[in-house]
Amino acid sequence: MANITENTGHETTTGLDHRKLLIWAFLGSECMFFGSLIATYLVYYGQGTPGTPTPLQVLDIPTTSTSTFVLLMSSFMMVMSYNAISKGNVKNFRIWIMCTAILGATFLGFQFYEFREFAVHYGLTPRTNLFGTTFFTTTGFHGAHVTVGVIWLVSLFLYSYRGDLTKDHGLMVDIAALYWHFVDVVWIVIFTLVYLIPVGVSGGT
């Protein structure tokens, strides 16, 4: 019965590695987590206190599009690093995973700039109005996930220097990659629902 689809050290009743099942169950639950945050943002959209910054005034589509592009490309780097390690090419794995981490950090830099711009230039903080509260909560939790991802990727990069990361340990990279891609797809949804649609419908830009 040893139909193991990944490089596991043991047999399971499903034939699947439970660590991989776990990450998928976790990502499923994360969908609901972000779904609730995005829904709250949408529900309170347009319910801002008069006289405080509105989404149309502060959202900067060109900048956010650039950071979206950066995050999408990091997903490509990630899949390339998984591709390298599954072929046993540790050298290329290191290059690709470091590129992924750097692009992730770049995305965080964009977000830091955006948050700072909102707070300093427009005076928009989580306390200002319902838009501020829901916007910073939603995008802030996503940023926190990216931060965890960057730390995870750098850890794998450093781990590879112990010489323990070989073709047989592809699952370790696979799980980190799934998390990273998930953070990317969540941003695809946030970029559309939090930025593009509200600005587009209101005739922004």
């Binding site: 034939g15 699947l16 991989k20 099942l21 998928w24 990502l27 499923g28 969908c31 609901m32 972000f34």
Partner: peptide
Amino acid sequence: NKLFTLFFVSGLALA
């Protein structure tokens, strides 16, 4: 394996 898809899509549908 389709079980992974099931896990993920369940959460996605609920969300």
